[in-house]
Computed example of a mutant assay.
Amino acid sequence: MRLHARHTALALLTALALAGLSACDQERVAKLEEGVASESDVRQQFGEPTRTVERADGSKVLEYPRQPEGTTNYVIEIGPDGKMSSLRQLLQPANFAKVQPGMSDLEVRQLLGQPAKTHRFDLKPDETIWDWRFQDGQERKVFSVTFGKDKTVIATATQDDPRERDAGR
């Protein structure tokens, strides 16, 4: 009984922490206006990006993944004028639907951002699976992409987040 209570308490604390992170992100997003906010404003709200891509035209793409524990991946574009031109949350059903067999791992990475987890199985050494955690209404889910040995998509799947099932035990 004690182990179950401890596990339930841990699940509750994790859920509260994630809700807090989500609320903080919503407040950060609300403070940034496209065409007005500068790169400095973005960094003040979101901190240092995990990845920055500088384009030939002087624009930049700043990545702010909330994986592996969160359910969002933000991409913020800064135009050549130094102003925020877009702020997108990538982990959306419309983006998952765009992932098709034959796409490269780079194309998927650009579409969905950093995965929460990458894994391989000994019995299928030529395959790699990337997972992203996301929120579907009130349900936490995992979107998975399986890549073949040539690093192109061979399959996708969506399932309930196993951590949610485990927390209910």
Results as ranks from 00 to 15, higher is better:
Gly102Trp: 05
Asp166Cys: 10
Leu18Glu: 04
Cys24Tyr: 10
Phe46Ile: 00
His119Leu: 13
Thr158Cys: 06
Ala11His: 02
Leu111Tyr: 05
Arg66Ser: 04
Thr118Cys: 09
Gln26Arg: 14
Gly148His: 01
Gln45Thr: 05
Phe143Thr: 01
Tyr64Gly: 01
Thr152Tyr: 11
Arg133Gly: 05
Asp166Tyr: 12
Ser144Pro: 00
Ala19Leu: 09
Asp57Ser: 07
Val61Glu: 03
Trp130Thr: 00
Asp150Tyr: 03
Pro93Tyr: 10
Glu164Gly: 12
Met1Asn: 07
Arg2Gln: 12
Ala155Tyr: 03
Glu139Val: 11
Ser85Val: 00
Lys83Asn: 12
Ser144Asn: 02
Arg140Gln: 13
Gln44Trp: 09
Gly47Trp: 03
Thr118Trp: 07
Ala9Pro: 05
Leu123Trp: 08
Glu77Ala: 05
Pro49Val: 01
Pro68Gln: 09
Gly58Lys: 02
Ala167Val: 07
Ser40Gly: 11
Thr118Ala: 15
Leu32Ile: 04
Ile76Gly: 00
Ala9Asn: 14
Ala56Arg: 14
Glu48His: 14
Glu77Trp: 02
Asp57Glu: 07
Ala37Phe: 00
Asp105Lys: 13
Ala5Pro: 03
Gly102Gln: 06
Leu12Ile: 09
Gln159Thr: 15
Glu54Ala: 03
Met103Arg: 10
Asp122Ser: 14
Gly168Trp: 08
Ala157Pro: 12
Thr128Gly: 04
Leu3His: 12
Gly113Phe: 01
Arg163Ala: 11
Leu3Phe: 10
Arg2Glu: 10
Ala17Asp: 10
His119Glu: 12
Glu39Gln: 03
Leu21His: 08
Lys141Trp: 02
Leu62Trp: 01
Met1Leu: 08
Asp41Met: 12
Glu48Pro: 08
Phe121His: 15
Ile78Tyr: 00
Gly82Trp: 02
Val61Ser: 04
Gly58Glu: 02
Leu13Gly: 12
Gln45Glu: 07
Arg6Leu: 15
Gly79Leu: 03
Asp81Asn: 12
Gly70Asp: 03
Asp126Ser: 11
Ala9Asp: 12
Asp161His: 01
Leu106Tyr: 06
Thr158Glu: 14
Leu111Thr: 06
Lys83Asp: 08
Thr14Ala: 14
Phe147Gln: 02
Asp131Thr: 10
Gln92Ser: 13
Ile76Met: 00
Ser144Gln: 03
Ser38Glu: 12
Thr156Arg: 02
Lys149Asp: 15
Gly47Gln: 05
Tyr74Gly: 05
Val42Ser: 00
Asp126Ile: 06
Pro80Val: 04
Cys24Asp: 14
His119Thr: 11
Val108Cys: 05
Ser40Met: 10
Lys31Met: 09
Leu18Phe: 04
Leu18Ala: 03
Gln92Met: 10
Ser144Glu: 02
Phe143His: 01
Val53Ile: 15
Val75Asn: 02
Ala37Ile: 00
Ala9Leu: 13
Met1Arg: 10
Val29Thr: 13
His7Arg: 15
Leu106Phe: 08
Pro115Met: 05
Ser86Leu: 06
Gln138Tyr: 08
Lys98Cys: 05
Gly148Ser: 02
Ile154Gln: 04
Asp160Gly: 13
Arg120Pro: 04
Gln89Leu: 12
